[in-house]
Write a protein that binds this DNA or RNA. Structure first.
Lengths: 223, 223
DNA sequence: GATGATTTGTACGTATGTATA
DNA sequence: ATATACATACGTACAAATCAT
């Protein structure tokens, strides 16, 4: 959870982490303005570390900063979101491909276990646990890919998309279908079939994309 | 060159751009320490915007900042570099795949022209122009992919790798082979063959990767 | 459109932590 | 190991620009 509490980081770094969490969790919603002074007061610090944290988040793509304007939580339009899902699908697909080649037996077992957990979570009607378990499923595949850089990038991208993904999953119950897809990915990994693993994963993530497309066509899109 | 001179950006933003250019161009080499005060003096500003610029670059992955230490230009170890090339190959492959589907005839013509330019550049022995032309070749494919986010991400990744790529190309003459590979990519795009375009592109970028691997095994690796 | 209030951008001083003799 | 030198981290002050009236 609070990754920063242990080590003695700078205030700016802690702020960046906290703000990032709030954005990802949806407490700070896209389009919202971020007042430096207000944030500084809220955290009981001066504006200097706040500014540095904001600039860091801006560089990470979570907020937008224009020269003399308030920073705002970045608002993704439909097109960009679809584009990001397209890239996410490609990266996850790469991860699955690498994992099929390099994944350890232990990790594979852990993956199977998470898959079962998700199955139980759905059967017993506890959708609130789904998000975390789903993340773990994918996370294990990143780890199994043995590519730390890929891991970081995919993680970042998922974080950026998470506010919207959450909204997506809230509105429609895609969990059942998603779980079946997980099953196919798992099977491909067990077989060590790189191409099939990559393909199933790409399809899996792209289904989320199509859903999003469908949903945003219903809600009148943003500005 | 100085993209920022036109608009009225903040000093911090200008600094971030300038420092990024210097890092990418190799004027600031990996591992080098960045002294806030020294940079501030060099650009004739105070340390505040320098700090913000450094934090931005840190978030972008170009420099490393640890709490009370000097910021240093990020030094990529061999393993990480290989991992980054692996991701780059995947993203470029995705771009080629999308481009095969969506690329306009005009862009395709431009691509063919650049390809010929590169051919001339090699034939006439002007290797100094190669880098820029090579970048243009790839750049046109990103544009043709019609995915702005992908474009940005690939661009960023190439920038991060460019110091090492430059060193790579200086040491060995891979241009001729690279040009042949470009030819195959171009042909696949003309045929509108998504799978082949993606595959050729992945192979093309991975060849750079293997080269790097080979080279770094010769020079005694860094610490 | 002009003016005042608010907010961002930059400079600088002090405190705290790091490296070194 | 202690102390000295030094660089960073943060806070505060002021200037410049934006927004609202």
């Amino acid at each position: 959870m609070d990754v920063n509490s242990g080590r003695e980081l700078t205030i700016a770094a802690r702020l960046a982490g906290s703000l990032e969490e709030e954005i990802v969790a949806g407490q700070l919603s896209p389009g919202q303005q971020l007042d430096e002074r207000q944030i500084a007061e809220r955290f009981g610090v001066s504006r200097t570390p706040v500014r540095e944290a904001l600039r860091q988040l801006a560089s990470a793509g979570l907020v937008e900063m224009r020269p003399r304007r308030k920073a705002v939580v970045r608002r993704l339009d439909k097109q960009r979101m679809v584009q990001m899902f397209e890239v996410l699908a490609s990266l996850e697909s790469l991860a699955a491909e690498c994992a099929a080649r390099r994944m350890s037996a232990a990790l594979l077992a852990a993956l199977a276990e998470i898959h079962d957990d998700i199955g139980r979570c759905i059967a017993e009607g506890r959708p609130e646990d789904y998000d975390a378990l789903n993340y773990q499923f994918h996370r294990i595949i990143y780890d199994g890919a043995g590519n730390g850089y890929l891991s970081e990038q995919v993680d970042l991208l998922r974080q950026h998309l998470s506010p919207y993904r959450r909204w997506l999953l809230q509105k429609m119950n895609r969990m059942r279908q998603s779980h079946e897809e997980h099953g196919r990915i798992l099977a491909a990994l067990k077989d060590g079939d790189e191409a099939r693993a990559a393909d199933e994963m790409r399809r899996h993530v792209r289904d989320d994309d199509r859903f999003l497309d469908f949903l945003m066509a219903q809600d009148s899109g943003d500005g």
